[in-house]
Design a protein around this nucleic acid. Structure first.
Lengths: 337, 337
DNA sequence: CCTTTCTTTGAAAACGTTTCCATATAAATG
DNA sequence: CATTTATATGGAAACGTTTTCAAAGAAAGG
């Protein structure tokens, strides 16, 4: 493997000059630049990444932590982030935490070992106090997940409001006994959604049915099980809020196969506007998030922090959702008429 | 940031001894080991990754190239690969090529710049001759995509056979005018599938309808468009083979909304057994791939190559599929009766 | 008791860059 | 023309590890 030294010798110049060419720095005459480029080509020279990183103390790489890449929401998020980052010459590495505290910290460790310059966290399973010390090693930006009183930039949607509106919509359709299906971990985001759900109930004078709150309902399969439970144990339930289109799809699927009519017997709303939600029959009412906008902003904010580390106080960017009403919740107008 | 030198000083020992502790090497007395561990803890010392990589010439990282992570097939593949790799202490970096020749080469460059020790390619858009030279810089393993007469290990399914069986199944259901919808790039894998499709037609004495071959049909949206085209231009088509569950879902969706009966008016088979295919109404007949097995084997093979670079001649592992017959293609038995 | 082998330690070289500093020449300024 | 200033180049230090080599003491073998 050819080194910079070999190139320098072949071109009859010094390492320093070669380095200047590699890094597009000024103060190299065109003639020598050409000589060096040719030498590099001749030797098939490629700069050694570890050596550059060691010396320059930069990796031009950022880590994005997410629960699991197979969740399309995060898949799309990372897709956009990567595109944006590469425009700035940054590489992205995908870190799946699987909602494990240990893995989350393992990946934050990348910051300490200087494998990445900065980190984006799209979920947060550890206590903030545990995460905060890593800030010493480099900037962290929160995207999607958020947390009050935290000295890092945040880019996210107002999940409380989204849940509030979804729930109001269910109530407007005539639902009076609502179930609440939530994901696995008690993140801040999950609590916000629950708060929005409760507020809507309260405003309309409906009861919050404690027993009809189910936890750890994440995948399609969980949604199917949840429906069976509703059918057997809570037959009075006539509307379901869930923070996941997969779960909503599982409910619609199982309900249809059990002879229940969606939405008349049970109205369902999901979250994230995944392709799945549109394709189901009936199509699932859902909440669309401005994924690309959030991803782009996140990367911009992080890179600004990297470039001017003396950045201003961390800002917060809140985006708004869009409720997409579809047939899984919109009761036939014949009833209203 | 504390360095190994700081630790050595605090413990009153040499860098070498500290390094031995870091790397779990023998020849350190327990007492000194404890002293060093304590010093490391006290200083919050973490070894610098770039320095280790530079000196040891290993990164313990492998790159996995794939078209797009938002495709669930690749999402699941990477999920399994990551799990397996981490068991061996290897990190995985996800490289989305978006079917671009340039990006594919850019990522192969990671091998040259020594950012990764080895590469898994799950798709291949460049000519093999272009890729081959990168083998000098490290091992490459092909998973999913394959290619005859290539000096690298291959782990994949027999796509020709899978397409052959799917097509036979369509014919068995009474279809006589089959359309063939294929993905974007003319990979070897795509050609194998087409060959299987043609063989089935030939065996059963059915014509291969050149005009009913559509290319660049990849996403749900493409499937919907494809259906419209079939409806308007090729109303005689009564069966569709497609190498993607998304496309199949798009067809089922659009057909249902246009009043066509699936499978009676049009039978459809997809590929990959994505959740989507089960949830559609009607559920989509599809081909299941042994994703986990292939992923695990791929990582094992690659790591073996990394450990004993004087490995034996590259082996080839071929896995078999499973055709999952569902309602999108299984004509009502009332017809058969 | 002498020789060999094993264990324990550290000094110094090496990995391949970038960066700092010094120097030399060319161009600009007064 | 003397003095700055800008341009062009190279030598050597630095980044933080691992690895090689040498050396010294302890244990084992005869």
């Amino acid at each position: 493997m050819a080194t910079i030294e070999d190139v320098a010798k072949l071109a009859g110049l010094s390492r320093t000059t070669v380095s200047r060419v590699i890094n597009d720095q000024p103060y190299v005459t065109d003639e020598k630049k050409q000589r060096i480029l040719q030498a590099m080509d001749e030797l098939g020279y490629v700069p050694n990444s570890s050596a550059r990183r060691l010396r320059s103390q930069r990796t031009d790489t950022i880590a994005v932590l997410l629960p699991r890449i197979t969740n399309p929401f995060f898949g799309n998020l990372i897709e956009s982030m990567e595109k944006k980052a590469s425009q700035w010459g940054y590489q992205v590495i995908v870190c799946q935490t699987h909602d494990s505290k240990k893995k989350e910290l393992d990946y934050l460790q990348l910051l300490k070992t200087k494998q990445v310059d900065g980190v984006v966290m799209t979920s947060l399973v550890n206590e903030w106090e545990v995460v905060e010390p890593y800030l010493e090693s480099g900037p962290i930006v929160l995207c999607n997940e958020y947390m009050e009183d935290t000295p890092v930039p945040m880019i996210h949607m107002d999940h409380r409001k989204a849940a509030y509106e979804s729930t109001l919509h269910l109530i407007d359709q005539g639902c009076t006994n609502l179930a609440y299906l939530s994901g696995g971990t008690l993140t801040h985001l999950a609590m916000e959604r629950l708060a929005g759900f409760k507020r809507a109930l309260k405003e309309r004078g409906l009861p919050f049915i404690e027993e009809a709150v189910m936890d750890w309902v994440i995948q399609v399969e969980d949604g199917r099980n949840a429906f069976r439970k509703i059918k057997e144990e809570f037959p009075l339930i006539d509307g379901v809020f869930t923070g996941s289109d997969e779960v909503a799809a599982g409910i619609v699927y199982e309900a249809s196969h059990c002879g229940w009519a969606i939405p008349d017997d049970l109205a369902v709303v999901g979250f994230d506007n995944q392709m799945l939600s549109l394709l189901m029959a009936p199509a699932v009412t859902t909440v669309e998030q401005p994924i690309t906008k959030m991803a782009d902003r996140t990367i911009e904010v992080l890179i600004q922090q990297l470039l001017h580390s003396s950045s201003t106080t961390p800002r917060r960017y809140i985006y708004s959702h869009k409720l997409l009403v579809r047939n899984s919740s919109e009761k036939r107008h014949s009833i209203a008429k």
